[in-house]
Design a protein around this nucleic acid. Structure first.
Length: 561
RNA sequence: UGGGGAGUCGUCUAAGGGUAGGACACCGGGUUUUGGUCUCGGUAGUUGGGGUUCGAAUCCCUGCUCCCCAGCCA
């Protein structure tokens, strides 16, 4: 098995190839991942991270910076900075010593702004936010020039300095680029470069009373860092003329902005604003709730960095809007986990089985394979005794066609153990099945019959006296519709059954001291991992990462129809 | 009806004048001490209409549909 599928180049790599061929940028390739620290990273960011760091890795000598675009102190916090650093690192990427902050460039940006003022390309405007909006015009109608547009250079210089010094109140003045109020591109209608904002910044404290706007700042950040290809999402396409305009007016190094389509996935949301609302309104337990599409949520759920990187590779890069099937993400994690996850046995919904002809008090230690795909993973011993648990769903009193598991009078294999035959069904007063009485064939120890007879079903099981009690959390998609929020408020689309808590699960004793961040395969069930936050020896809690593919479920479903 | 983008199997993504390919999903066969894995096979696509050409997903014309833009957010 190899994952070196022939992956064709995406359109950005084609552009880079061309640039390299033409000797552009001294044949350097330098990208950056520029998150705003105003929330946790999600799977959509992972796509961008893999793109930017991936390109740096693919090209000889390529580099990728991690840069915090922290130009709005009102929304940004160190907590987010820390989580972003952790997540990018965890995904497996390395920015070496190139961890940057836009706020480190504030002084340089200020100097550049003065340069534009002196060139009569920027002016201080006294219009209020409402007035600026009114002057901007509409999509179809041109805007009107600000009455402050033609202030003298010296006056602009003086006013701008006083803005910086904090002499004016929040929102009272802005620095604007002098471009074209009639441009069909609204971004070019004298965009605001600086706003007065007296708010403490997470890094610069109260040093600044003015903060740069994205359009002004971002190109400068790229330019200062010598970025060659500045990759961003489609909604910034309209901003590219402005990105180019600023750099051109300044006459500084000019990176190339290239836009690609952001990731969308079925049955989830990818907007930081909406994710924040899920957290604040307690629809989830936090940013790292295992149901969240955040990197931290996926990590806690049991997703591996590699599975996320492979996923990013599979979804590709293009410019068309897309909604990627959740099944692709699940496939990616199964693909990775199948190769690496140690196999164990765990019963989620236990049904007691007593082996009547098995000697009381006796225990067999049976050898079980840790990973059938990888002999190096070795084996372990699993105890077997007279009283066991099997999965309730593995028994049916009146089995339908194609049901190969246990039923009255039927013989099945207990994995790595013995063939057993169901002799009696014990019920309580309400008719609920509470126990099965079975017999075993001692000659089938290990799971095969010397006489060569076959059984159709193999069941997982746990020895009752040896079992570890555990809580297991099963997760389903967070939303019950493909495109949450399409019809109404997205909160109404939350899947009420996104979490199922099982409290009486029985696990094999080898799971007594599970390593954190190890994802196990509970055979025939799925992949499970100790919860990073709530697992304890006294109260073991496991999260289901993803179920195994279940062809019986499909047959069952088909039979119902 | 201002500007900027985008339309290829159900989904994602290649092919940029020369056999429309891959992945996921789905459906079937084989192997199997996991109804897992692996393996073999199958279904399924170029937004409509014109044109150029021996030949068009690709070039031209003309429709249609979808997405983005009127923050002192990024």
């Amino acid at each position: 098995m190899n994952t070196t599928e022939q992956t064709s180049k995406n359109f950005i790599e084609n552009i880079i190839d061309q640039d390299l061929e033409n000797g552009k940028n001294d044949s350097r390739v330098h990208t950056r991942f520029p998150p705003e620290p105003n929330g946790y990273l999600h799977i959509g960011h992972a796509k961008s991270i893999c793109l930017n760091f991936g390109i740096a890795k693919k090209y000889d000598g390529g580099l990728c910076n991690l840069r915090f675009d922290d130009t709005n102190p009102i929304k940004e916090e160190d907590e987010y900075v820390d989580s972003i650093i952790e997540d990018v690192k965890w995904l497996g990427f390395d920015w070496q010593d190139r961890l940057y902050y836009a706020s480190d460039y504030f002084a340089q940006m200020y100097t550049y702004a003065i340069q534009l003022i002196k060139a009569e390309k920027a002016y201080v405007c006294d219009l209020t936010a409402d007035e600026i909006r009114a002057h901007r015009g509409t999509l179809k109608n041109p805007g009107a020039e600000s009455p402050y547009r033609n202030r003298a250079i010296d006056e602009n210089l003086d006013l701008f300095q006083r803005m910086k010094n904090g002499e004016f109140g929040n929102g009272s003045k802005t620095l604007r680029a002098k471009i074209d109020m009639e441009s069909p591109n609204l971004n070019m209608r004298d965009p605001v470069m600086y706003r007065v904002l007296k708010a403490p910044h997470h890094r610069t404290g109260d040093t600044w009373c003015i903060y740069p706007m994205y359009d002004w700042a971002h190109g400068l950040e790229d330019s200062i860092e010598g970025i060659t290809h500045s990759l961003c999402t489609l909604e910034f396409e309209d901003h590219r003329p402005l990105y180019d305009w600023f750099l051109e007016q300044l006459g500084v190094y000019h990176p190339q902005q290239i836009e690609f389509a952001r990731l969308n996935m079925s049955y989830t949301i990818m907007s930081k604003r909406k994710l924040l609302r899920l957290v604040e309104e307690k629809h989830v337990t936090g940013w790292d709730d295992p149901r969240m599409p955040t990197i931290s949520g996926l990590r806690r759920r049991g997703y591996t960095p590699k599975s996320i990187r492979n996923f990013a590779e599979k979804v590709g890069i293009a410019k068309r809007d897309n909604i990627v099937d959740m099944a692709l993400l699940e496939h990616s994690v199964r693909e990775d986990l199948n190769q690496h996850a140690p196999r164990v046995m765990g019963v989620l919904d236990p049904l007691k089985v007593v082996i009547d002809n098995y000697p009381e008090g006796h225990v067999d230690e049976l050898e079980a394979i840790n990973n059938p795909g990888n002999p190096d993973a070795g084996t372990r011993m699993v105890p077997f005794s007279r009283e066991l648990y099997i999965e309730r769903a593995d028994f049916m009193e009146y089995p339908p066609r194609k049901f190969f598991r246990l039923a009255p009078g039927r013989e099945v294999r207990l994995r790595y153990a013995y063939f057993i035959t169901c002799q009696n069904v014990v019920k309580d007063d309400n008719g609920n099945i509470i126990e099965l009485r079975c017999t075993y064939d001692p000659a089938t120890k290990g799971g095969s019959a010397p006489d060569g007879r076959k059984v159709k079903g193999t069941l997982h099981w746990v020895s009752a006296p040896h079992a570890i009690d555990a809580e297991i959390r099963l997760y389903d998609r967070l939303f019950s519709v493909q495109n949450p929020g399409k019809e109404h408020d997205f909160v109404e689309d939350i899947n009420p059954n996104s979490l199922t808590v099982l409290k009486e699960c029985k696990l094999e004793p080898s799971l007594k001291n599970p390593e954190k961040r190890i994802i196990y395969q509970f055979e025939r069930q799925g992949y499970y991992t100790p919860d990073l936050k709530e697992y304890s020896k006294d109260y073991p809690v496991f999260n289901r990462t993803v179920s195994l593919r279940d062809s019986w479920a499909k047959i069952e479903k088909a039979q119902q129809r």
